[in-house]
Amino acid sequence: MLRQFLVALLLSLTGLHAAAETDIFISPEKYRADPPVSGQVLGDNCSACHGTRGAVFDEIMPPLAGMDRDTFIKLMLNFKFATRPSIVMNDIANAYTEDEIRRMADYFSSLPAVPWKAQSLH
């Protein structure tokens, strides 16, 4: 009881409420009737961290290129539904529909598991 109180006090002192107010969340289901976003367009949003075409193999964030399709879907759904806590992926996976996650999986699983800089372009 005392601890709960202390935690609440700590949170209010540090201004949690102000932070919570800035969070916005609209379910991706809202956009269902819009034309689809392709797997590649979705995937291009991942590259700033996971590398161009998801093909950076020597970083903290794992490569996505050539990732097994089912593994990709399973992990992303776990992130989306927060059954698997993560540093940042819960917040990211939240934004996509399950269809979009499958399209990303199709896209990344079709790419070679080779570092981007070692790939030939066309």
Partner: peptide
């Protein structure tokens, strides 16, 4: 430390990366 992120819930890595 969120070790499970890369190394799996009970230390069985969920993907090929770790």
């Amino acid at each position: 430390g969120y070790c499970f992120t890369c190394h799996g819930e009970k230390g069985y890595a969920p993907s090929r990366n770790a």
